[in-house]
Write a protein that binds this DNA or RNA. Structure first.
Length: 549
DNA sequence: TAAATTGGCGCC
DNA sequence: AAAGGGCGCCAATTTA
């Protein structure tokens, strides 16, 4: 156990039950305290986000950690109490029946911040003795979880994710600002001084206006809807797929404008200025940032980089990017968690899963098979996917029952869990923004039927998306470990749900590719136990991210 | 005037 | 082809 105390630290060895196993040591310097103890294989601390950047800045890596505030969030969730404060101070207050302090508001990331050195602590300070009490209590609460072994694994892998997040922030994604500028110029044309629209956008806006015969601002949905209305065309929204159906000369420039406008505002010159420093893009990753366990990033839009902008992600000279994308995650994860024999068999090969699926149940119609499966996972309510769901249910009854059960739980206001035990928010929390009620279309009852179904779709998807996130955490933890153990110079530099990028010297690409493959398979076994399900990747070794897939 | 919401679209 | 799940970001608009 370590706790920062200004620049110094308090340390104590811990026994398996979470109790102190020796005297508390006061060390004058956290960095030296950790650096001088390579024999420690796991550090228990309040917050990785607060402590680890300081260690990394001094060149100190730790093997494993236990993040008390991450654990608190997972344990609260497991107890159906998501939404209660998760800081160590709050956890201690609950133990002492004292008033529970609210969590500090989430701060937004500082663009270009190199580390969290000057960030305020993530929660109120807690006395060392209090931190010890909280940890011992958490050890106990893991024992009382529905599946203690899985819950411990979840906390361990989430903690590993925090280490990876801090290390990836430090490493940064290689980013060529000059290439980015070239791409922007090619797409958007000249950039006018004064922050106005670049040339190409101005031209497209003029084309839209010309097509309507009056000035129309393409970025204002209300204006566009009105313009179509005046042209005798009724549209409900200006979404692209709706506009694409219309026969009107404004449609083409309008759609082109929207696409470019998005790039200009979200990943244009200002973004480049704000977020790229010294050839690196350093987003602040937040493991477990979503309720399902998927990561988010705080600022910079790192998980929504448009494909066309990925040309700017270029490996250093003599280095390569190993881009690995997990193949068909949802069906593979569904097979593993439902233990459906047929689906496990389909997912038991590295080849095209949807082809295997269609050969078994859809007369070789790959597209229908894919839509049916995704429809089952997402809770599709209409269209061809629904029709094909019946075929899916006949052939893969346990798999469909698994997501149907999750949907029913949601509709009835119950929570669901991922395979490792991350738990969906209780209804009380989810219902906050829905109290006003959503008007029902058609003649259907205006009860909360729509809300219940929406919640069912959420929990249906939660068990699959969240269990995939469980797997992804183990993948990252395993890959991080292997890259280090093999003494490679390779660095994990990007992670996006089911995709990783490793930046490495050209001569290490084979080792890295193999490390990723092995980490994926191991993650499958550790997360889901022994199943026939395989977890293959499509891997590309490239110099530019955009050249992958 | 600041905070919250909305519409749209980028990614998975 | 359309529509199901999860997000973040931006600009504009509405609300407090």
């Amino acid at each position: 156990m370590a706790a920062a105390d200004g620049g110094g630290a308090l340390l104590v060895p811990l026994a398996g039950d979470g109790a102190p196993a020796g005297p508390v040591l006061a060390e004058p310097d956290l960095v030296e305290a950790v650096r001088s103890r390579p024999e420690v294989t796991r550090w228990v601390w309040r917050s990785t986000a607060e402590l680890y950047p300081r260690l990394l800045a001094a060149g100190v890596r730790v093997e494993r950690c236990y993040d008390i505030e991450c654990a608190e969030l997972l344990l609260l969730g497991h107890a159906g109490r998501l939404g209660e404060p998760r800081s160590a101070a709050a956890a201690l207050a609950r133990l002492e029946n004292a008033p529970v302090p609210p969590d500090p508001p989430a701060r937004s990331a500082e663009p270009g911040s190199q580390s969290s050195l000057f960030d305020p602590p993530s929660g109120p300070e807690v006395p060392f003795e209090g931190l010890l009490r909280v940890y011992a209590d958490q050890v106990r609460r893991h024992e009382t979880a529905e599946h203690p072994d899985r819950m411990r694994l979840l906390t361990a892998s989430e903690s590993a994710g925090m280490l990876v997040a801090a290390e990836m922030h430090r490493a940064g994604l290689p980013w060529r600002a000059d290439v980015h500028r070239d791409v922007l110029h090619g797409l958007l044309g000249e950039r006018y001084a004064g922050g106005g629209e670049p040339r190409r956008l101005a031209e497209l806006a003029d084309e839209v206006s010309a097509a309507f015969g009056r000035r129309v601002r393409p970025d204002l949905p209300a204006d566009v809807v009105k313009a179509f209305s005046q042209a005798g065309i009724s549209v409900k929204s200006t979404r692209r797929w709706e506009l694409a159906e219309l026969d009107h000369p404004a449609v083409e420039p309008l759609i082109a404008y929207k696409k470019l406008y998005r790039i200009w505002t979200a990943h244009g010159w200002s973004w480049l200025q704000d977020w790229v420093r010294e050839g690196r893009f350093r987003p602040e990753y937040q493991p477990g940032g979503t309720v399902s366990g998927r990561w988010t990033t705080n600022g910079g839009g790192a998980l929504q980089i448009p494909k066309v902008i990925r040309q700017a992600v270029v490996a250093d000279a003599g280095w390569r990017l190993v881009v690995a994308d997990a193949d068909q995650m949802e069906p593979r994860v569904l097979a593993a968690i439902s233990r459906d024999r047929g689906l496990m068999e389909v997912a038991g090969h590295d080849g095209d899963l949807y082809k295997a699926l269609s050969d078994r149940a859809f007369h070789g119609d790959r597209e229908h098979a894919k839509l049916a499966l995704l429809g089952a996972v997402y809770g599709q309510t209409s269209g061809d996917g629904l029709k094909n769901l019946a075929a899916l249910r006949r052939r893969f009854p346990l798999a469909v029952a698994y997501v149907d059960d999750a949907a029913r739980a949601g509709e009835e206001g119950r929570t669901v869990r991922t395979w490792l035990g991350r738990t969906s928010p209780p209804v009380a929390l989810a219902g906050q923004d829905e109290e006003a009620g959503i008007p029902q279309e058609g003649g259907e009852a205006v009860s909360d039927g729509g809300l219940a179904r929406a919640r069912g779709r959420f929990t249906r998807n939660f068990v699959v998306q969240g269990s995939a996130a469980d797997w992804a955490l183990l993948l990252l933890a395993g890959l991080r470990r292997t890259l280090h153990e093999q003494g490679l110079r390779a660095e994990l530099v990007f992670f996006q749900h089911d995709e990783v990028i490793v930046h490495c010297p050209a001569e290490e690409t084979d080792a890295v590719t193999e490390a990723i493959r092995a980490a994926g398979e191991l993650a499958g076994r550790i997360a889901f136990g022994e199943t026939p399900v395989r977890f293959p990747f499509t891997t590309a070794v490239v110099e530019r991210y955009s050249d992958a897939k």
